[in-house]
């Protein structure tokens, strides 16, 4: 799995490549949290089960990333471990882990407030899974 951030005048996005869909979804989550915080410093103290349904892979990625943003925004929980157990075009099951935000210890960077549908992509290109997402910051 590899990822990089992409430029947008006002906001920021990610591109991810992976061999499997599970790795792709885990990679997108890690890429997103890497924009928000130095993930190395976020210990997997608390874990949460995530189970989502969707009509297609694009909607699933949209729901997945926004679900994780919800943990940050509503619960003050930063995440750094993403174990995606299964992904299909209609749903996902995962275990995620992290710890409550502690500004004294966590190196907080840019806050991501939402994942958008703009330019959102989840597709297979020459045998490799590819995803792109643009965030509202």
């Amino acid at each position: 799995m590899k990822f990089n951030t992409i430029e947008h005048t006002a906001d920021i996005g990610i591109e991810v490549e992976a061999d499997t869909l599970e790795e792709l979804f885990a990679g997108a989550a890690l890429a997103m949290f890497s924009i928000m915080v130095d993930v190395e410093g976020v210990e997997p103290v608390v874990s949460r089960e995530v189970k989502l349904e969707a009509a297609d892979l694009g909607e699933l990625m949209f729901r997945w990333l926004n679900e994780l943003i919800f943990f940050v925004s509503a619960k003050g929980l930063l995440l750094s471990r993403f174990e995606v157990k299964s992904v299909s075009d209609c749903g996902l099951e995962a275990t995620v882990a992290g710890e409550p935000v502690d500004p004294a210890r966590h190196s907080l960077e840019l806050e991501i407030k939402a994942a958008t549908y703009y330019e959102l992509a989840v597709e297979k290109k020459e045998g490799t899974w590819f995803a792109r997402a643009i965030f509202d910051v």
């Binding site: 009509a55 729901r63 407030k113 549908y117």
Partner: peptide, 26 residues
């Protein structure tokens, strides 16, 4: 942000149901 996120999903399904083709899913 959550209200927008919630209703983007609702509207996305409306667009599908009506068979509209939009240049951008957002």
């Amino acid at each position: 942000h959550q209200v927008c996120t919630d209703y983007l999903q609702v509207m996305d399904r409306v667009v599908k149901r009506l068979g509209w083709v939009l240049p951008d899913r957002q």
